[in-house]
Simulated assay, not measured.
Amino acid sequence: MLGTTRYIALVGGGKQPKFPQNKVCSPDDSDSDPWVFITTDTYEVQIWNDATQVVATSLEFKTPIQRVRISQSHLIVVLLNNVGIYKMKSPPEKIADYETVNNPFGLCALGKGIVAFPGRAPGQVKLFETVTGNVSIIPAHESPLRALALNKKGDMVATASEQGTLVRLWTYPSCTKIVEFRRGVDPATIFSLAFSTAGSMLAVTSDKSTLHIFDLPVGLQASAAEPDPKTHKWGILSKVPLLPRQFSDTYSSATAKFDMGEEPVGWGPQSKSATFNAGIPGVPGGRPTKGLIGWLDDQTLLVIGAGQDARWEKFTVGVDETGRRAIFREGWRRYLD
């Protein structure tokens, strides 16, 4: 959906669409069924005007559409190995087109004047400036990307690989690393990364059913700060020089459990692989989305999951009785019958 406007991006098509657009009236009025289907393998993006109930504009593609991002000025269409950038008009005007590594989860972030998406090498982030057309590349990880996000200003990028142990924060346009956060020691599937509205926190969810809140550094020098044993997860061990880096890394300031829902036996977590797509046709990643984060304001966020047991949970970020950062669960609801 385009903000809170009447415009919604819809994706469909394929060989057996639930609501086919390729129905035409048969010229033989004596037919018992006056409608026939024209075989097509095209996939379509429609910009739907919900007030007038008409399609404002549309685009057709030959391969499945993994993700769409829209703003008042731009339309981004993500395919498995391609990202198309268009000016939002009728019809849309293509201004750039880039090849990518396999991108089954449709990773793409559209910010203020900038688009972030995977590059042509695993773990690489490509940044496209919509005004100038300038392109920057960040070699963010050695393994394929699993999640990325832009802050509201478009001057910070958060990335995570399919390893899921580290989350890295980069500045734009300098493309330098500010800080590296440790989600945990064991590998995990990162479901979602999202900056708070004021850009002071970063929320992260994973298939461990855990929501993490990381406090973002103030100024570029914050990344060089020494860990404080009083607040660090490993206490005084964070200051011992010969221990593995896991003991001195920056961990989340608060965590909470979210519910992924009671899916059928055999559903399993979303695939950890960021380069292989299998499962439900037409669904990015092949599995129902879980752990999707949406900030309502700088202290309140929702964690949303699709699937057979689709639900959302509401959390607020504050401080507990000891004065430490804490996450409080405010409520939840199943949103599908």
Rank of each mutant, 00 (worst) to 15 (best):
L2D: 06
G3C: 07
T5Y: 01
T5I: 09
Y7S: 06
A9V: 10
L10K: 02
L10R: 03
K15Q: 14
P20F: 04
N22T: 15
K23E: 12
V24D: 04
D28P: 07
D31Q: 14
D33R: 12
P34Q: 12
W35I: 11
V36L: 12
F37T: 15
I38P: 11
E44N: 10
N49V: 02
N49I: 11
V55H: 00
T57I: 06
F61G: 05
F61Y: 14
K62Q: 10
R67F: 12
R69T: 03
I70N: 04
H74N: 14
I76C: 02
V77D: 05
V78C: 08
N82A: 11
Y86H: 12
K87F: 08
S90R: 08
E93Y: 13
N102Y: 09
N103A: 13
P104Q: 12
C108M: 08
G111E: 00
K112L: 12
K112Q: 15
K112S: 14
G113R: 00
I114G: 04
I114M: 03
V115F: 00
R120G: 11
V125R: 05
K126C: 13
F128I: 10
T132I: 01
N134Y: 11
S136N: 09
I138E: 01
P139F: 01
H141A: 02
H141E: 06
R146N: 06
N151R: 00
K152R: 09
K153H: 12
G154V: 03
V157W: 08
A158K: 07
T159K: 00
T159Y: 06
A160I: 09
E162I: 08
T165G: 01
R168H: 09
S174W: 00
S174T: 09
C175K: 13
K177I: 05
K177Q: 15
F181S: 04
A188H: 04
S192R: 07
S192N: 11
S192T: 00
A194I: 03
S196G: 00
S200V: 00
V204K: 01
S206P: 02
T210F: 04
A225P: 05
E226F: 07
D228M: 06
V240G: 06
P241Y: 12
L242F: 15
L243F: 12
Q246I: 14
Q246P: 00
D249L: 07
T250P: 00
T250F: 10
T255R: 02
T255A: 09
T255P: 01
A256Q: 12
K257F: 14
K257D: 13
F258P: 06
F258Q: 01
G261P: 02
P264Y: 05
G266F: 03
G266Y: 10
W267P: 02
G268M: 07
K272C: 10
T275S: 13
T275G: 03
N277C: 14
A278C: 08
I280N: 08
P281T: 13
G282K: 01
G285V: 05
G286Q: 09
T289N: 11
G291E: 11
G291A: 08
G294H: 15
W295S: 02
L296E: 08
D298G: 09
I304H: 00
A306E: 14
A306H: 12
G307R: 06
Q308G: 04
D309H: 11
A310F: 09
W312Y: 14
E313A: 02
K314N: 10
F315T: 03
V319Q: 10
E321Y: 08
A326W: 11
E330N: 09
R333N: 12
R334G: 01
D337M: 08
